[in-house]
Amino acid sequence: MQKQILMSREVLLTGAIVLLLAIISTRFPAFIAPSNLANVFNDTAPLILLAIGQMIVILTRCIDLSVAANLALTGMVVSMINVAMPGLPVPIIIFIAVAFGALLGMVNGVLVWKLEIPPIVVTLGTMTIFRGTIFLLSEGKWINAHEFSETFKAFPRTELLGLPLMSWIAIAAVIFFSVVMSRTTLGRAFYAAGGNPHAATYAGIDVGRTQFWAFTISGALAGLTGYLWVSRFAVAFVDLAGGFELSVVAACVIGGVAIMGGIGTVVGAMLGALFLGIISNALPVVNISPFWQLAISGGAIIIAVALNAQANREKGRIILKRAEHAT
C-alpha cells in the first residue's frame, strides 16, 4: 500500500498516456505500431532531456526559462565549429556542447547563488541575452544542411538495436538521473533544499550552491540537446526552438513536479514530456489541425497543476491520534 502511494503520480500519468494512446488507436490503429511509437519517442527525446534538467531546477524552488535559448546558442556554436573545422570528431563536439551549455547554466547559477537574484528574473534576462548573442555570432544568417559535415549530421540518426542514438541518449539520461536523484547525496540535497531550505541549512546543505548545481545540470542538458537538435534537423538559426522553454515547464508540471519545490521525479518529467510528445504527434494523424496543440498543452498544464495541488495539499500538524492512523 505504501508503494502504491509513492508511485501513484507516475502510475496515474502512465494510465493517462495509455488511455490517450487507446483513444488515438480507435481512429488510427497504426499510431500504436511499435515503429511509430519509437518515432514518437525519438521526436520527444529533446523535450525529455530538457524536462529532466528543468525538473531538477524546479525542485530547488527555481525556474530556468533560458533552456531553449541555451539550446539554440549552443547549437549555433557547435554548428559554427563544425563549419570551421569539419574534421572535428563528434565525441569532441558533444563534449564542447555539454561543457558550453553547462557554462551558460553556471552563469544563471552564479547570479542566483551569489547575488541572490530571483531565478525568474535571471533566466528571463539570460534568455534574451543568449538569443541576442546568437544573432551577433551568426549575423542573423542560417546555417543550412549542406554546410554541416556528414558525420555531424549522422550521429543522432545512427541506429543501435533498432533505435536511433538520439533515443538511446534520452533513455540513458533518464536512467542516469534517476540514480543520481535517488541514490546520491547531491540528488537528495536537491529535494531537501527545495522541500525545506531552512531545515536543509541545519542539515549542512548549502542551498545556494545546490541551486547552482541544478542550473549547471540544466544547462549541460540544454547544451547536449542543442547539438542533437541542430544535427538532427541539420539547421541552426536565431529562433531555433523559440518558446520551447514553456513546453519544458509544461512537461514538468504535467509530470507532477511541484512548482513550489521539493516534489518531482525523473520518471514523472519523462512521462510529462511523452504526454505532450504524443499529443503533438497524434494531432495531424487524427486529422485535427496542429493549431490545436498550443491550446491543448495549455489546458493540460492547468489540469495537471490543479491535480498536483490536490495531491500535495498541506496536511497540518496532525494532532489527533486517529488522523495519524488514518493516513
Partner: peptide, 11 residues
C-alpha cells in the same frame, strides 16, 4: 535536536 522540528515533509 532543534526546538522546532526542522525536517523534510516529502522525504
Amino acid at each position: 535536536i532543534h526546538q522546532e522540528t526542522v525536517l523534510f515533509d516529502e522525504l
